[in-house]
Design a protein around this nucleic acid. Structure first.
Lengths: 338, 338
DNA sequence: CATCGCCTGTATAACGTTATAGAGCCGTGC
DNA sequence: GCACGGCTCTATAACGTTATACAGGCGATG
């Protein structure tokens, strides 16, 4: 099909190996030879056959980013950053959608099925420490966003408990006392939900507010629809909350919708806070106060760590990195300022 | 590294070629032999080395979906569908972000630079017929969503003019007479914007309404921010519109935001319609009336066409396929019903 | 002047797969 | 009894690259 090493070698009158060395810089090549080869490459328009290169090297140059939902803007924004960073490092990123399915996560972790990927960035939601530890094949693994700790892999996330604290402190500071949480989840799934609930409880206690289990709404998933349903349930309580903290921005936006439909004013009657700082929250009515993780840092760091591991480089620092976050006040808590 | 064909061949006591035939079904294999080989495969946990397969076959099994913005929910939703369809056909889909950059689109079209992809699905916005015709390498090409016609490639899109007609007819039907368009674009870029403006003008004429150039707002890009800015400009006119049709849902949502900030009621003062039917529009306040393309059909068809071309299959039917769309009425035009 | 080592460059063997040519076996038809 | 064709299966040559071992030339060193 295309132009290959042999063509270049013939044109430049050198051996295959020399051309390869010019292309890869693996061994020094004399200046005159290099120029002849480079000229031949330019003239014939050579680009290496990646399949062959990868067969020989044992690596494909592909890394995967597996997320529970592609359509969650948080992950779309993260993916955009990760794709750019991967490209800058000479890798191609493929997106995988686990659809928050345990089987899909396990299949990715197993890694033996598809030997096409050099390494994996995974946002796990249905697997825990044990399943992660069971990974033996498939190359390096970087975990993002969840609370699977004590595994021999890089793990990049915000401090979920501290993030909750910040959100609740803000709601308390603006005078709210019946603060609900939307997005708790039963069992061992979705560690981050447990951590965010923990932060919520701790912050309530620190503020001297009672913990009311009925104000903690469970959801099956974490989309707008789930947030709306949960908010409706909370509103149906005899004594509804005066503030809501959502597991993420999508849930919070669903809650905003339920509040609007029920005729409640935000933030006057109910204040709302989310997590993720997706662009949608800057244009919702009202705009959404949120905990903003540093998505750029998370995306770039995850890719850089993974690539470093793949290439066998020494990586300094601890496996677990907590990236910074900040509270962004907008209309849904009555204190616009973004 | 992993288990390979040779291991299986030894274990089953047959030749390499026989194992390959069992795996690929390329040539018939005796029932007893097949079972022995299959057993060996299961026991050793063999999966083919894709790099080697692809080197030999000359194909990589990778296809690319290149879109102008990953973070536009329309493309995220489309990507989710396309990824699933590609997986079902045994292909891996990689996302490319052109960022609506002409250079990026040209580089993808050129195809000679990265020989890793078997074919490309492109949503072009900055290249036209000429640039598409110049493509000679890089495998089959499927275009989605824009108005580049008369090229020897599959092209899948809605009828942009008809979609505009439907939107404007609806606005006229609910009594609007000063209807604005947000998202026109100068020059030859973004064919679909031109087509949507054309549909807008034709529909106005058909309704006996005058075409007012000042009510057609240009934008540089097509996000929420652009919609808000354009809406502000329209509101600053002496005689602002009583309805707005946005180039897409994001622009329309930006317009909603500008209207809310300026204290206008939607739909009472100004009605708003978008295109794309992204989930966000079902939860905005007010919910957004929109033209809903059949994303599932577009995504699946694009992938199926591309794969068929890659595999050299005969593809029946015309190159250009116009997929169906429908008007979804929601609160922003005062006629909820979704 | 012989030896050593560095510097360039070459020849060649993998990497794991698939496609092609052909070998062995068996039953069929003359 | 023998040629023949149809089935299975095997041996092997690619695919394009990189890494290893090696060869030749040349200046420096003893």
């Amino acid at each position: 099909m295309g132009v290959n090493l042999k063509d270049i070698a013939q044109r430049a009158g050198v051996s295959l190996a020399t051309v390869s060395n010019v292309v890869n810089g693996y061994r020094p090549v004399g200046e005159r030879t290099r120029q002849r080869v480079q000229q031949a490459i330019d003239e014939l328009g050579y680009s290496p056959n990646l399949g062959a290169r990868h067969l020989r090297r044992g690596r494909t140059g592909l890394i995967a980013l597996a997320v529970p939902e592609l359509t969650n803007p948080y992950f779309a924004e993260l993916a955009e950053i990760a794709i750019a960073e991967a490209a800058a490092l000479g890798y191609t990123l493929v997106m995988e959608n686990t659809a928050a399915d345990r089987g899909a996560e396990l299949a990715l972790l197993d890694g033996s099925r598809r030997r096409i990927i050099d390494g994996l960035i995974l946002s796990p939601v249905r697997v825990g420490r044990k399943e992660v530890l069971a990974r033996t094949a498939g190359g390096p693994l970087v975990l993002i966003g969840e609370g699977v700790y004590d595994v021999p892999h890089d793990h990049i996330a915000i401090d979920n408990v501290a993030a909750s604290h910040a959100a609740i402190r803000h709601l308390v500071a603006i005078g709210r006392r019946r603060i609900a949480f939307i997005g708790a989840t039963p069992g061992g799934d979705r560690q981050s939900a447990h951590l965010r609930v923990r932060g919520y409880r701790e912050a309530l206690a620190a503020a001297g507010l009672p913990y009311r289990p009925r104000l903690v709404a469970r959801t099956d998933a974490f989309g707008r629809l789930d947030g709306r349903r949960a908010m409706r349930e909370l509103l149906a309580l005899g004594d509804p909350p005066d503030a809501v903290f959502g597991y993420n921005d999508l849930v919070a936006i669903g809650a905003l919708r339920a509040l609007a439909e029920a005729g409640h004013r935000v933030p006057e009657d109910v204040a709302v806070v989310g997590i993720d700082d997706i662009e949608e929250g800057r244009f919702s009515a009202p705009t959404l106060t949120t905990i903003a993780p540093d998505k750029r840092e998370i995306g770039r760091l995850a890719v850089r760590r993974l690539v470093a591991r793949i290439e066998g480089a020494e990586v300094a620092g601890p496996l677990t990195v907590q990236t910074p976050f900040r509270l962004v006040r907008r209309e849904s808590t009555g204190t616009p300022g973004d």
